[in-house]
Design a protein around this nucleic acid. Structure first.
Length: 560
DNA sequence: GAGTTTGAAACT
DNA sequence: CAGTTTCAAACTC
């Protein structure tokens, strides 16, 4: 104990400083038997990182970025244990309502989270500083029972590829419940389900029955299709999904295999989430006679598609699907293009002016402007800006000579980009930006163009102009995206409304089509609109004027 | 807000 | 390890 106290107290203070009052009992505090618990009591960290990631997620964890993971969780809702990593940030402490556990069992959220009760509505609470001894004892007992009791229940999925996030919509569904849930009646679509509550998909670790919390689940999608803020709607959807599938006879889940198949086919073509593996399990756990007939995803179709169509509620960005990789490629190409054009135009003008001036002064140097001087000679004339230009690009190569083959694979070497372009691309190593698509012809042009500039001073202006144009175009692009997002927003809300009204008329929306992805779905004309922005596709994504410039792209390439 | 449902935790 | 009980959150009315 002595040891324990020491350990416990010190850290505790330390913690207190970092977490306020309520007391997160730090791991340290719990580290009573110091060594023994040391490792397990790391509830602090855990929750927060799991899914997050970069992304800025969702996870979510999920997440996500951190913000990660958005959650369907209503603000007021208090979830059960803290495995909701969603906001890992020292959440506002939860307030338990324990009456019989003295807040010394995992039933108590506070205790389970490793924090002291503070401001809770519990009765006969021992989870506080005053009862540290008892608490400690309880912790030990708990750990004895389950060494991982205080560890996060959600672990990042080993397979948590970025793709899964993508598939999931926007939410990061990368985590995986370590123990898995054991739900029987909630379809894992209610917060009774730890997985659902944590905003993650059920995994192979789960032993739930009639699970609908898997990737591609129509019910699940339906659930997330509405307004995120409309809890009532969500619950209604959840109920519909659950009852729809369970039916009057208990758990008659639709043939999962089939369902999945279809879904993967139509909705989640790129499935790789571990949850998939659960498929089999689901089948196994399905209780009751599985409607043989059923291959027809009736319940699914009805509840899922019909009810709401393919979409998720768990924060499905309105921009989802609007911006496709090709759009970005295109955008980059166009930006580079216009940038190059601007540079060229400006440079030509300058050259002309310069020439003109030189002619007037009859300086023999005039000729030098025609062609680039040899490197060594250029130094004298060429401004460092020029050097900056290409060197910056070169630096990139230098930095990752090897990478160039991968990341910048398609980026032609020695083809520096304008500052504006670089600025836009600097954070994007993604190959998507560089890959194929459009031949970096334009870039080359841009670079060549700039490298032709013998007049350093002019370069600044050129850069300024390039930057201006690039940013302008980019702004236009963003405005378009915003507009599309708004359109989607409008459509989504109206769609949700319609679907709610149509719930009684389920069949209409054939599953088949549901196909498509999220909002863009087009099975029933209704969603069509959402697709339109996409339909216009790439070109439409680019500001009109840019598209026009695109025409000149050809021209420029020819010039090159 | 009371009552019910649900599923994790605890217990046998 | 399986079955049962306890418990508190989630949910319903």
């Amino acid at each position: 104990m002595g040891e324990g106290e020491g350990a416990g107290c010190a850290p505790k203070n330390a913690l207190s400083s970092e977490v306020v009052a309520p007391a997160v009992v730090s791991t340290a505090a719990l580290e009573v038997p110091a060594r023994k618990l040391a490792r397990q009591l790391d509830f602090t960290g855990a929750p927060e990182h799991p899914q997050q990631q970069p992304v800025a997620v969702l996870p979510l964890p999920p997440q996500a970025p951190h913000a990660r993971v958005g959650k369907p969780e209503s603000p007021k809702s208090r979830s059960r244990p803290n495995f909701e990593m969603k906001d890992a940030t020292p959440k506002k402490q939860k307030q338990c309502n324990c009456k019989h556990s003295k807040c010394l069992k995992l039933y108590c959220e506070c205790f389970a989270s490793g924090i002291y009760c503070d401001g809770c509505n519990c009765v006969n609470c021992f989870n506080n500083v005053e009862n540290e001894a008892a608490r400690r004892e309880a912790v030990e007992a708990t750990l004895e029972r389950n060494p991982n009791a205080f560890r996060p229940k959600i672990a990042s999925s080993p397979h948590g590829t970025r793709d899964s996030r993508e598939e999931a919509g926007d939410v990061l569904i990368l985590g995986k419940h370590n123990k898995g849930c054991h739900c029987k009646k909630s379809g894992c679509l209610k917060k009774y389900c730890e997985c659902f509550q944590a905003n993650i998909l059920c995994s192979e670790n789960c032993k739930c029955m009639d699970c609908k919390n898997f990737e591609g689940s129509e019910e699940r999608q339906a659930l997330f299709h509405g307004d995120q803020n409309n809890m009532a709607y969500i619950q209604q959807a959840a109920n519909a999904a659950i009852t729809g599938a369970i039916g009057s006879s208990g758990y008659s889940s639709p043939p999962v295999s089939k369902k999945r198949k279809g879904q993967e086919l139509f909705f989640w073509p790129t499935t790789k989430d571990p949850s998939i593996s659960k498929l089999g399990q689901q089948v196994n756990h399905v209780r009751g006679p599985a409607p043989s007939s059923s291959l027809s995803p009736i319940s699914g179709a009805r509840v899922g598609t019909a009810t709401l169509g393919p979409s998720k509620f768990m924060y499905r960005s309105l921009l989802a699907d609007i911006i496709q990789p090709q759009h970005l490629k295109e955008l980059c190409s166009v930006l580079v293009l216009v940038s190059g054009q601007a540079a060229k135009t400006l440079t030509d003008q300058k050259i002309l002016m310069e020439k003109h001036a030189e002619d007037q002064t009859e300086t023999s140097l005039a000729s030098s402007s025609q062609e680039p001087l040899p490197p060594n000679q250029m130094e004298g004339h060429v401004e460092k800006t020029v050097a900056d230009d290409c060197s910056s690009a070169n630096q990139t190569d230098k930095i990752s000579p090897d990478d160039s083959s991968s990341d910048g694979a398609d980026v032609p070497k020695g083809r520096p980009m304008s500052p504006g372009t670089l600025a836009l691309m600097c954070d994007e190593q993604d190959t998507m930006f560089m890959t194929a698509a459009s031949p970096i012809g334009p870039m080359a042009h841009a670079c060549n163009t700039s490298s032709q500039f013998p007049y350093g001073q002019g370069m600044t202006e050129v850069y300024a102009e390039q930057e201006r144009i690039v940013l302008t175009k980019f702004r236009d692009f963003l405005n378009r995206v915003i507009t599309m997002g708004e359109i989607n927003e409008t459509k989504c809300s109206s769609l949700a409304r319609n679907e709610l009204e149509n719930q009684k008329d389920p069949i209409i929306n054939g599953v088949g089509n549901a196909s498509s992805r999220q909002h863009g779905a087009s099975s029933n004309g209704v969603t069509k609109p959402a697709a339109s922005p996409l339909a216009t596709t790439s070109t439409s994504m680019i500001p009109a004027n840019i598209s026009e410039n695109g025409e000149s792209k050809v021209k420029i390439e020819k010039d090159i």
